[in-house]
Design a protein around this nucleic acid. Sequence first.
DNA 1: CTGACTTTGTGCATCGGTTCACAAAGGGAT
DNA 2: ATCCCTTTGTGAACCGATGCACAAAGTCAG
Lengths: 225, 225
Amino acid sequence: MKSPSQPRDRGIPEATVARLPLYLRALHGMAERGIATVSSEDLAVAAGVNSAKLRKDLSHLGSYGTRGVGYDVEYLVYQISRELGLTQDWAVAIVGVGNLGRALANYGGFVSRGFRVAALVDADPEVVGDSIAGLNVEHIDGLEAVITRRGVSIVVLATPAAAAQEVCDRVVAVGVTSILNFAPVVLSVPDSVDVRKVDLSIELQILAFHEQRKAGGPLMAVDSQ
Amino acid sequence: MKSPSQPRDRGIPEATVARLPLYLRALHGMAERGIATVSSEDLAVAAGVNSAKLRKDLSHLGSYGTRGVGYDVEYLVYQISRELGLTQDWAVAIVGVGNLGRALANYGGFVSRGFRVAALVDADPEVVGDSIAGLNVEHIDGLEAVITRRGVSIVVLATPAAAAQEVCDRVVAVGVTSILNFAPVVLSVPDSVDVRKVDLSIELQILAFHEQRKAGGPLMAVDSQ
DNA sequence: CTGACTTTGTGCATCGGTTCACAAAGGGAT
DNA sequence: ATCCCTTTGTGAACCGATGCACAAAGTCAG
């Protein structure tokens, strides 16, 4: 059904890529509620953006809407999934099984999007051998073997800050080119490797900045020097 | 020591605010290693940005460097901390004590930056009453009381998606204006409330997008219809 | 088949952020 | 005191992203 335009432009703006998962999430919710067709306006509201931006974003993938009607939910889910590479299965390894690593291992949001936690790795003999979320925690010594044998292509770093760079170097050396880093350090990697970082305390600091402004009012500076 | 320029402009660009915590982290590391003075070039490398950007960012706070020399580490730490509002103590409540909430409660990175986890709240009678990271988990029924009594000004939402909006509405109703949301939903709040969101699976999806491009090469499209 | 209505896709103006490149400012040596 | 060297702070060009506003394209009723 439909006359699908070709996928067109290969150069999708970074800002658009960052929003596609958002649209996907909103669309999944709609599909579950049995909605077959959605307008850019409605989808934009559900995703928390404005409709002009949404349309421009989608136009980068191709022309998948129908004027006067809107977008077919199922069809759009498929197109965005394909664009993001979620139609294939990604094997993820989590290195560092502390509180955070454990939480990530148990996090359902990964699995539901085509990400499969294929390995848990840690250096602490205390936790090596434990079974978490149905997986056996393996020793860091076997890191390279685990990565290659299980076909891991994305590594999540949840180690202490001090260990992150070394682990990073090792996984890069065996060909990993995508890393999600939770350790509060700047990793140095070759240009060919993508690193995304999540620092929970940075988010709080940004909130604190704005909160301070609000609290102090337009004219705070109680002890302004 | 030094002749401090006045704090100047009150309008700091959002992009700059988001990087200040990064600089702060790098500076703390330097202070620990006993470095007294740092050039914009060195600090930029340590923070993972380029030096022109760093200088422009810092120039928004005031003129805190010395030409020909660089920046005094201690002094700059203080100025950035003050700008971010980290010289005061922020009481944070974590709502939702699942895997993630637990990990957050135990995360040392908060405390070390002036954030104090003042309360843990959950709806599950199974976990209410547990002691986690030295705190007693309280029942969601007392949410409003806990927030006001403990002076909580920032709320971290680590609930299931379905519960997030309701909890959000309740904390906003008692005056909270800063929320860090881990639940995969778009929260609707008044304009006066700041929401920052962290979605772990979105980060992975962005990585997958780029990984796919690399893997497929410039001309993938195996079945490109 | 025609006309009214809806909604997409996009050209264009605008805005915020990044980067370059250099003048201004300070330190230290002679 | 003068000169040279280093490094900041910033004006200006550039670049990507956003939002407006509308023509193009489709649906549906009669």
